[in-house]
Amino acid sequence: MFEGPVQRVVDELSRLPGIGRKTAQRLAFHLLAVDEVDARRLAEAIVQMREQVRPCRRCFNMTGGEECGICMDPRRDPHIVCVVERPQDIPVVERTQEFRGRYHVLGGAISPINGVGPDQLRFAELKDRVADEQITEIIVATNPTMEGDATAMYLAREFKPLGVRVTRLASGLPVGGDLDYADELTLGRALAGRMEL
């Protein structure tokens, strides 16, 4: 236990995911040791982020304005939309530099076991976008888990009848891995999604 203000910072830090008691103490003492301006910059960055960041009104990516940079970028193809579970999945897809369309953040995945149904996710908003933005292809980039699969199947069921092409990221063998280590499920999908050479 430390003096009030120090303990308060330790308590707050240790509530963050993946940060235990020990790490929280180390971080707190680090923040005490650095220049005051550095500590203040961090505090201000957190406050500003909370004040300014909100969901993009079009795709629900995190943004400081009304619409995110991707949605406002005129070079991006508005007719192809990549559907992700969470905003943090967007930079992951962006890093590939392979995708030139826009995004749509569902806010999670359908989870029968946890009682998360389509009504709790942003499918209605996507339906509106398909009509308003003349979307022709939806690329599903949900996780390759039971929940992500259920979400992908639901998207196909809802949007294919509207004439939208619905595709999903191929599931397969990790680059650099050994074939013997692949499980049946992954290998089965890799086989189903094989490519012409």
Binding site: P144, T145, M146, Y181, D183, E184, L185, T186
Partner: peptide, 14 residues
Amino acid sequence: KTTSRFGGRLEPFT
């Protein structure tokens, strides 16, 4: 992790 050696073996219903 996508490189997990468990792969899809621990998905529900397995």
